[in-house]
Design a protein around this nucleic acid. Structure first.
Length: 491
RNA sequence: GCCGUUAUCGUCUAGUCUGGUCUAGGACGCCGCGUUCUCAGCGCGGAGACUCGGGUUCAAAUCCCGAUAACGGUACCA
């Protein structure tokens, strides 16, 4: 791609930079997906970087979850904490020296300063500003301290943070790849904290330093970062670096139109796996949230997604995450799975002892029949129970519409006679259908009168797969047993 | 409060740059019909939107101005 300003060709390197503070959720995966799609589209690199600079919210297990999530979704990265690359390390906690070094450089050339204000004082001024309804920002108390004096205080062990000196005048322009030109007056930008009092960097310093050295371009991230982009642009300037291009993605919203969070229920990305969704389905669905390939088609393989993806076609408005549409995608993908693959994926959701009872071929058919009616893998077990155990049901359920029990009994009895004569080896779906239907026709038995009780006898359900399908899977012996049982219920 | 972003069916969206072909197209969901013993699937059909107010123009979803609303930011969180 070109960088837009001087047509210089630069390598595409995008990154997903989560902070390990909890389980990754859909919004994060969505951002990762777009970064991945972009990198793959331009044959660039996709990097995973762990932004673990917040020691108070740090969760040790989160990094593994992030990696597991990316793996499950098939968003492979070229460099990361567990895949060494030329720009590592890929954990910010292992790059502390770098950040400190540049913070000091900034202080040395007057672009930043030590601030000794206590959190309490900061809170005070914010409270007052809120009361006076003026913009809430740092009041510059330490901005003009004598650098020598500040340095001595620091050296003497006094606690301080490092703040960036934002110019009072002028404006900073973000030329966003998705939103175009966004202008910010410098006067409303706060003197951003770069280094916290514990010596760790804030997001702004760390991400700028890392994006620079890891040669990230473009930076693709969620809209929540748009307001802080001018600060970062100013930081690049102060550091004497060329800033990357930025693309701010719209936000994924909950049904109440607010940013997706815990209160919208469990949005953990790995929950999709546990809930029986297929990664391909979720990817397809997520890709079409906020991005549109300008066709009426909706199903896209990964390769097609990569081929067609472009940032210009990304929407500006936030999109509500709609579970029903995801379900539709998932059902579609479930039905188009090759039988062997389907069994393999469904197995973990089924009861072990039941699975072991069946020969592989029968298991494949059971799962296949269930999958035609399931939206997720998780729903499959409930749709297969009648195959594994004799159904329990009210005798009256055997009667089709207004049919009386006597007549139903006659039909089942006739079915019993017909099926008894059929060799077990011929108990296939097609055979069954041909024979039974021609008898119904010849003997004027009534399709509903016969087939409804047959199906109920076999499944015990009001809604189920068809009787021939079930009978073929159950086999001759079990089919006859269940029909006999139905007869007993009716007498 | 201040700063910023956004605005087409309930939801995801096409159309907006380059005004007419838009009595606004597709998909999910919903409703009905058909296929059918039931469900699912499939096929067909229906209800359903240009945030509001001004302008410009022969003509505006599309251009201009002004409101409004929603969301995001406003942390020694990211």
């Amino acid at each position: 791609m070109t960088n837009g300003t001087n047509n210089e060709i630069i390598a595409v390197r995008t990154r997903f930079a989560p902070s390990p503070t909890g389980d990754p959720h859909v919004g994060s995966v969505w951002t990762a997906l777009f970064n991945w799609l972009y990198a793959r589209h331009y044959h660039g690199k996709f990097i995973l970087r762990i932004e673990d600079t917040d020691r108070t919210r740090f969760i040790a297990s989160a990094e593994m979850k992030i990696i597991e999530t990316l793996r499950w979704f098939g968003l492979d990265y070229d460099e990361g904490p567990d895949i060494d690359g030329p720009f590592g390390p890929y954990r910010q906690s292992e790059r502390l020296n770098l950040y400190q070094q540049y913070a000091e450089q900034l202080i040395a050339n007057g672009a930043a300063y030590y601030c000794f204000c206590s959190p309490e004082r900061l809170q005070e001024i914010r409270k007052e500003q809120k009361l006076r309804k003026t913009p809430i920002r740092y009041d510059g108390h330490c901005r003009n301290l004598d650098p020598q004096a500040a340095f001595s205080r620091r050296a003497a062990g006094e606690i301080a943070v490092v703040r960036l000196k934002i110019p009072f005048n002028g404006q900073t322009v973000v030329d966003d790849l998705i939103r175009g030109r966004v202008v910010f007056k410098n006067s409303v930008i706060d003197d951003q904290i770069l280094l916290k009092s514990d010596g760790w960097p804030t997001y702004h310093l760390a991400s700028v330093v890392d994006d620079h050295f890891m040669q990230i371009n473009p930076v693709i991230r969620a809209e929540e970062w748009l307001s802080s982009t001018p600060k970062q642009l100013l930081l690049y300037q102060a550091l004497g670096w060329t800033a990357p291009r930025f693309a701010h993605l719209p936000l994924i919203l909950g049904s109440d139109r607010s940013k997706l969070s815990k209160r919208h229920g469990s949005m953990d990305a790995l929950k999709f796996r546990d809930d029986g969704y297929l990664p391909e389905a979720v990817i397809n669905f997520l890709a079409l949230l906020g991005w549109n390939p300008k066709t009426n088609e909706e199903f896209f393989t990964r390769a097609e997604l990569i081929k067609r993806f472009e940032l210009k076609a990304v929407n500006k408005a936030g999109a509500i995450y709609d579970r029903q549409k995801l379900d539709w995608f998932n059902a579609h993908y479930l039905r188009s799975l090759p039988p062997a693959e389907l069994v393999h994926l469904a197995k973990p959701y089924l009861e072990k002892k039941e699975v072991e009872k069946l020969p592989p071929a029968a298991l494949g058919r059971v799962v296949g029949v269930a999958a035609e009616r399931a939206k997720t893998l998780l729903e499959i077990p409930a749709l297969t129970t009648f195959f594994f155990k004799r159904p329990a049901y009210e005798p009256s359920l055997l009667n089709w519409k207004q049919t009386v029990a006597d007549l139903t009994a006659q039909r089942i009895n006739r079915l019993l006679e017909i099926l008894k004569d059929l060799p077990a080896a011929d108990f296939t779906e097609d055979n069954l259908e041909n024979i039974v239907k021609s008898k119904i026709n010849d003997e004027k038995l009534g399709v509903g009168e016969t087939l409804w009780p047959m199906r109920v006898a076999l499944t015990g359900l009001k809604e189920s797969p068809g009787p021939f399908t079930v009978a073929a899977i159950l086999g001759k012996e079990e089919t006859l047993e269940r029909l006999s049982e139905a007869m007993k219920k009716l007498s």
